[in-house]
Design a binder for these strands. Structure first.
Lengths: 192, 192
DNA sequence: CTGCAGACGGGACAATTTGCCACACCCCCT
DNA sequence: AGGGGGTGTGGCAAATTGTCCCGTCTGCAG
């Protein structure tokens, strides 16, 4: 897929996810750099020689990954910036794109999704007419997954922010043995 | 708010909505042009002298409003393009923004929302860190509203695409008497 | 070491909500 | 007039939720 690969920067505050992503990308022959905060990233930037791509988490503690887009592009104008966030919203996607982000994904995203988003060379193709109305259940499910992920799999906490009873969340989860496929190299993944 | 106003183009296939929008904008001293399809719009473009803003619906029959962004900007590079769509998605928002759209809104949007989105002069401000986890119920409700709107208030059709029983949708709607506040002159909205 | 707090999985049971069927009307169209 | 579809409503069984309650585990003070 990408024999030459290149240099990539990962900015993600979740240690587990960051290292997983990093390893997965290195296995694909990318030369990786990683940072876990806005400050780390800003400190790291000047030391880099080249950068072909960057994956930025929006939710970096109290800082916002959005603020990194401009500095990254200032130093490496050709860098492909991919924003990856737990909770994506249309306004923030617009803001990121306006700042020059190449693409915007919401977690959970598989490695394949990420690479595809970065590779998307066609700035003008996407006929994108998927104005398809998602079923209520699907939407609910995806949202639950996101929130759950946002709370590192903590069911109790997720249930609280979702505004439903913990018991209910448990029951619903049991019904759908969803395989969370983060950045697993191959889809198959045990249970982060 | 906008004493000088300017010339604006509205491309929207729903007759009722288009005329409402048009009248509301004219009342605000905008010089309006309107089209109800991609072809109409493309035919209209060359005849225009100036254009300060454009509101494009994404869902134009079988065509996609996204394709209009480039032509519009080609003729009027300084034009502010606002994409307005019934069911918005992050990928399509990214696609629109990449093509040069100034902003992207989902219906229902009040006139105030629209004007604010067009006025948004700050391409670099938005700290946007609302990575807030919406409650399941709120998200559900909003989605229902969008889908309902997408089907012009047709409960049966909406229920079908939502994948729930018509009776259930009815009951849920009755519980929350929401006032659909399209482009009503004044926001007059309870709690969007 | 010993609580204590908080998370997880589950059982039991009542309170709601859904899914479904039925019936009444309406409106539009052939 | 006779479909075909949409909108309200009533009623009822079935599924889902909200609660309470337990028993375990684990990490963290004391």
């Amino acid at each position: 897929m990408n024999p030459p690969a290149g240099a990539i920067l990962i900015v993600e505050d979740d240690d587990a996810l960051r290292t997983q992503l990093l390893r997965a990308l290195e296995r694909r022959d990318w030369h990786c750099h990683a940072a876990s905060s806005v400050d780390d990233c800003l400190a790291l930037l000047p030391t880099l020689e080249t950068l072909d791509a960057a994956i930025l988490d929006l939710n970096l503690g109290h800082d916002n990954g959005l603020t990194l887009i401009t500095p990254v592009l200032a130093r490496f104008p050709a860098c492909r910036v991919l924003v990856l966030t737990g909770y994506g919203s249309i306004p923030s996607a617009v803001a990121a794109t306006r700042r020059g982000a190449h693409n915007y994904l919401t977690k959970p995203a598989s490695l394949a999704d990420i690479l595809a988003a970065l590779g998307d060379n066609t700035p003008e193709h996407t006929p994108t007419l998927p104005d398809a109305p998602p079923s209520l259940e699907r939407l609910e499910w995806e949202h639950i997954q996101r929130v759950l992920d946002d709370h590192d799999g903590n069911i109790s906490a997720a249930a609280r922010t979702l505004g439903i009873h913990r018991r209910t969340l448990q029951r619903r989860l049991k019904k759908r043995p969803s395989a969370s496929d983060y950045d697993r190299d191959r889809p198959a993944d045990p249970a982060r």
